[in-house]
Design a protein around this nucleic acid. Structure first.
Lengths: 191, 191
DNA sequence: GCTTACCATTAACATTTGATAAAAAACGGT
DNA sequence: ACCGTTTTTTATCAAATGTTAATGGTAAGC
């Protein structure tokens, strides 16, 4: 499990065994069942997560009470809740297990202390933040310049098998359309 | 002018006079005329910009050859091109002066060196990055969960007078709609 | 195995948005 | 002030998407 975390980190920004040792000591392993909601930031708890097994998503509730999917997280990736730290408008960003999942967590405040002390860890964290920003900009471009059908095509390229693994409602809200519209596009794309 | 840069920085993350002194020495002041395109990253030049006077935008060209507005930059703000640094997919992010503008620039590589040496500057830069990510997530939420009309209403709240200062085409592409559609929504909202 | 809840699809209709074209208005340079 | 360009508005029609409702399927729990 710890080896998996190390691999996740190294695919993003390679760090030394020594630097990883600092992180390793602090890892806590958690599991959630399909459908469970969890959060990475509240008054008492601030955590960073590594996704080891299963699929999860971040989402928020819009004024109509619907879940809006913001991001999907596959195995061997990092759940990135950074924006919550300071934003007033993004008060309620949740996470949900879309399958049974296994996570490794680390206390966010301790991790930030590690960042200050260790330049490798700081570079790693900064790369995570930059990657996240890049993915947001890429998604922004897609939403602004592609039709819903084109966005679905891009989604399929990016997330390959995901469409067969999770309820489509999540994908529809991620694409910014209704699930009825998604169903129509799926039919349309079968030909 | 330098005082303005200091104020911009301090509204984001207050730094000491000493830390600002490090930045101040490296500032270069530039002006562009309305309609001019400029870029903050290429092989020979990597710059960070502070917007002192006027309005500018970042944009890219979609496959149809249209300009897609990504962000607007008002006076006393920071032009944030960070994603370009590493992304392959966001190869062509440009900036354009929407009015005559005055900027202060700083060489990005030198600035990164300052970040390493000075924790205040590092914290400032990190806050910029986080703010940028927050604004992307907020925009993402809006695009995914609001109608075009609602997005226009939110745009007006956020950018107050901007609608009267720049060609509406920019706003339409920012909102993800055509300028014809924007015109209809404007008429609709007059009642 | 049965039932219930959730999910995906389909249909019919309403609404929104896009595309194209044309006219009116605003703007810029001389 | 004039001319040419750009921008905004308007109209018409087509296409895409949303809304509501009904149907059938699938998975989970009992």
């Amino acid at each position: 499990m710890k080896e998996t975390v190390k691999n996740i980190i190294n695919t993003i920004y390679p760090i030394s065994n020594q630097a990883f040792g600092e992180i390793e000591k602090l890892l806590i392993f958690e599991t959630y069942s399909k459908g469970e909601t969890f959060i990475s930031r509240n008054k008492h708890n601030k955590k960073e997560y590594f996704a080891l097994k299963g699929i999860s998503k971040s989402y928020l509730i819009n004024p109509d009470g619907d879940e809006i999917t913001i991001s999907f997280f596959l195995e061997n990736s990092i759940l990135s809740p950074h924006p919550i730290r300071t934003s007033k408008n993004i008060s309620n960003l949740y996470f949900k297990a879309l399958t049974d999942i296994e996570l490794a967590s680390i206390d966010a405040e301790i991790f930030e202390q590690l960042m200050i002390e260790n330049i490798e860890i700081r570079n790693f964290a900064n790369t995570v933040l930059q990657n996240e920003l890049i993915s947001k900009v890429e998604k922004e471009i897609g939403l602004a310049s592609l039709s819903a059908k084109e966005r679905l095509i891009e989604f399929r390229k990016k997330y390959r098998l995901l469409e067969n693994l999770i309820p489509h409602t999540n994908i529809a809200s991620y694409l910014g359309i209704t699930n009825i519209s998604l169903s129509r596009l799926r039919k349309d794309l079968m030909n």
